[in-house]
Simulated scan of single mutants.
Amino acid sequence: MPIDPPPPGDRASLAQEKARLRGEALARRAGMGDAARAAASAAAAQRVPAILGPVSGAAVALFAPFRDEIDTAPLAALLWEAGATVALPVIVGRDTPLLFRRWRPGDLLEPVGAYRIPTPSPEAPECRPDTLIVPLAAFDRRGHRIGYGAGHYDRTLAHLRARGPVRAFGYAFACQEVSSVPAEPHDEPVDGMVTEADHLLFGG
């Protein structure tokens, strides 16, 4: 069901609430410590096959972890072993959907942009993913997520979903869960969520 646009005065309140929830969830994530994050990343990867099902021949987009995000390297290893094509996102422009390029075992990733996010080489082939593993700052159990404020994944999911079936699953630590994310019309929900503690499907 479409979400009605909030009145202009409410938009500022929603932005403030999202900023508060984002800050609190990221503080909890930072407080985990390196050893706990590594263990949780490995545990979360083991939960993904149950929610994805068979992936042989499918294209799955991951993300290269930034700062203290959940590490996707253990998941990439599982996907390659299962016969999936793995891709990583490339930021094309501020208001442009993400592009995805194939990432093969052994491929070197190049730090790109102001945040030096590891990115496939421009020579890596482009790839349209069947499934996206989506980063986030905070999430709830209705399928809503809070990103980092740039809107890259909302634009990307809207673009891909307008052109055919695609699945999207949030991927984060359990400590990033919040009771309720305030949703706006432009927010694209995820179809499921995977953490080290649980895996959830939304929307039936």
Score class of each variant (00 low, 15 high):
residue 1 M to N: 03
residue 1 M to E: 14
residue 1 M to K: 04
residue 3 I to E: 04
residue 3 I to V: 15
residue 4 D to Y: 04
residue 4 D to R: 14
residue 5 P to F: 09
residue 9 G to A: 15
residue 12 A to K: 10
residue 13 S to R: 15
residue 15 A to Q: 11
residue 15 A to F: 02
residue 16 Q to L: 13
residue 17 E to N: 06
residue 19 A to M: 02
residue 20 R to G: 05
residue 22 R to Y: 11
residue 24 E to S: 10
residue 24 E to C: 01
residue 25 A to F: 06
residue 28 R to M: 01
residue 29 R to Q: 06
residue 29 R to E: 06
residue 30 A to W: 01
residue 30 A to P: 00
residue 31 G to R: 05
residue 32 M to Y: 05
residue 39 A to F: 01
residue 42 A to Q: 13
residue 43 A to K: 08
residue 44 A to D: 06
residue 44 A to P: 12
residue 47 R to G: 03
residue 51 I to L: 15
residue 51 I to W: 00
residue 51 I to P: 00
residue 52 L to T: 11
residue 53 G to S: 13
residue 53 G to N: 08
residue 56 S to M: 10
residue 56 S to I: 01
residue 61 A to M: 03
residue 62 L to Q: 03
residue 63 F to Q: 03
residue 64 A to R: 06
residue 67 R to H: 13
residue 68 D to C: 05
residue 69 E to Q: 06
residue 70 I to K: 02
residue 71 D to R: 09
residue 73 A to N: 08
residue 74 P to F: 04
residue 74 P to C: 09
residue 75 L to N: 04
residue 76 A to Q: 03
residue 79 L to F: 02
residue 79 L to D: 00
residue 80 W to C: 00
residue 83 G to C: 03
residue 88 L to R: 08
residue 89 P to Q: 09
residue 90 V to H: 09
residue 90 V to D: 07
residue 90 V to E: 11
residue 90 V to C: 12
residue 93 G to A: 14
residue 93 G to Y: 01
residue 99 L to F: 05
residue 99 L to I: 00
residue 100 F to N: 02
residue 100 F to P: 03
residue 100 F to Q: 12
residue 101 R to G: 01
residue 102 R to W: 07
residue 106 G to C: 01
residue 106 G to M: 00
residue 107 D to N: 13
residue 107 D to Y: 02
residue 111 P to E: 12
residue 112 V to E: 15
residue 115 Y to C: 03
residue 118 P to M: 01
residue 118 P to Y: 13
residue 122 P to L: 04
residue 123 E to N: 06
residue 128 R to I: 07
residue 129 P to W: 10
residue 129 P to Q: 14
residue 132 L to A: 14
residue 134 V to Q: 13
residue 135 P to T: 05
residue 137 A to C: 12
residue 137 A to P: 02
residue 137 A to V: 11
residue 145 R to G: 02
residue 146 I to A: 08
residue 147 G to F: 10
residue 149 G to L: 01
residue 150 A to E: 08
residue 152 H to D: 12
residue 155 R to L: 15
residue 155 R to C: 11
residue 156 T to L: 04
residue 156 T to M: 06
residue 157 L to E: 04
residue 158 A to M: 11
residue 160 L to P: 00
residue 161 R to M: 10
residue 162 A to Q: 14
residue 166 V to I: 14
residue 167 R to Y: 09
residue 167 R to D: 08
residue 168 A to K: 05
residue 171 Y to F: 15
residue 173 F to V: 09
residue 175 C to E: 15
residue 176 Q to L: 07
residue 177 E to A: 14
residue 183 A to Q: 13
residue 183 A to V: 14
residue 184 E to R: 15
residue 185 P to G: 07
residue 187 D to R: 13
residue 188 E to L: 09
residue 190 V to S: 06
residue 190 V to W: 08
residue 193 M to T: 05
residue 196 E to R: 11
residue 197 A to S: 14
residue 199 H to T: 09
residue 202 F to I: 05
residue 202 F to N: 01
